[in-house]
Simulated scan of single mutants.
Amino acid sequence: MEESLFLTVLITGMFLVCAGLGIAILLSPSSFNAQKGQAYECGIPTHGTSWMQFKVGYYLYAILYLLFDVEAVFLFPWSTVVRQLGTPGLISILFFLLILGLGLAYAWRKGALKWK
């Protein structure tokens, strides 16, 4: 009973996705214009090539921000059940914060946080 229900839902889902994509391909207007392939930035025409190099510092900041932002998100579920976890939960989150702090200290020591 459960297997047939699962297969029915799976097949129906695949059919609806394929039908939606097929209808969109059939009904959507399609035309190619050279202007469509150009880079677009807030309505301002671009000057020169859109391929240019950026300093690696921008990428380091972005990666560090994502790293610490994602790790900070892990604190929210923990904070909702902190009383139920007790002392082992507190010790585990302190260990987590220690590793997070060591990562920040390492990035700081390597100079990844200096804006040059």
Rank of each mutant, 00 (worst) to 15 (best):
F15E: 02
Q53T: 15
L85R: 07
Q53Y: 12
L60G: 08
L104P: 11
G43Y: 04
A107Q: 04
Y40K: 14
K116P: 12
G111C: 00
I11N: 05
P45E: 03
V82P: 02
P45R: 10
L26K: 08
L7I: 12
A72Q: 05
G103Y: 12
L64W: 12
A24V: 07
Q53E: 15
S79V: 01
I91G: 00
R109W: 04
P77F: 05
L67E: 09
Y58K: 09
A112Y: 14
A34D: 05
Q53H: 15
A34I: 08
G22Y: 08
L113H: 15
A62H: 08
P29G: 03
L104M: 06
A107W: 09
G57W: 02
F68Y: 01
S4M: 07
W51K: 12
Q35Y: 13
G89K: 06
L7P: 13
F32Y: 15
Q35R: 14
A24Y: 15
I23A: 00
V82W: 10
L66I: 14
T80Q: 00
Q84H: 07
W51M: 00
I23S: 02
M52P: 03
P29V: 06
L75Y: 10
S28T: 06
G111S: 02
G48K: 05
G89R: 06
V73R: 01
S92P: 02
G103T: 06
P88E: 14
G22T: 13
L10W: 07
F96V: 09
G13T: 13
A105D: 00
L94G: 03
H47P: 00
G48V: 03
L100Y: 09
I44Y: 14
P88Y: 10
K114W: 13
S50C: 05
P88C: 13
R83A: 04
H47D: 11
R109E: 00
P77A: 07
K55F: 02
I93F: 04
L10V: 10
A19Q: 11
L64I: 11
T46G: 06
F68D: 00
I23C: 02
R83I: 06
F6D: 06
N33P: 01
Y58I: 13
G22R: 07
F6Y: 13
E41Q: 06
I25M: 07
A62R: 06
T49P: 00
I23L: 01
L66S: 10
A62G: 03
G22Q: 02
V9S: 01
S30Q: 04
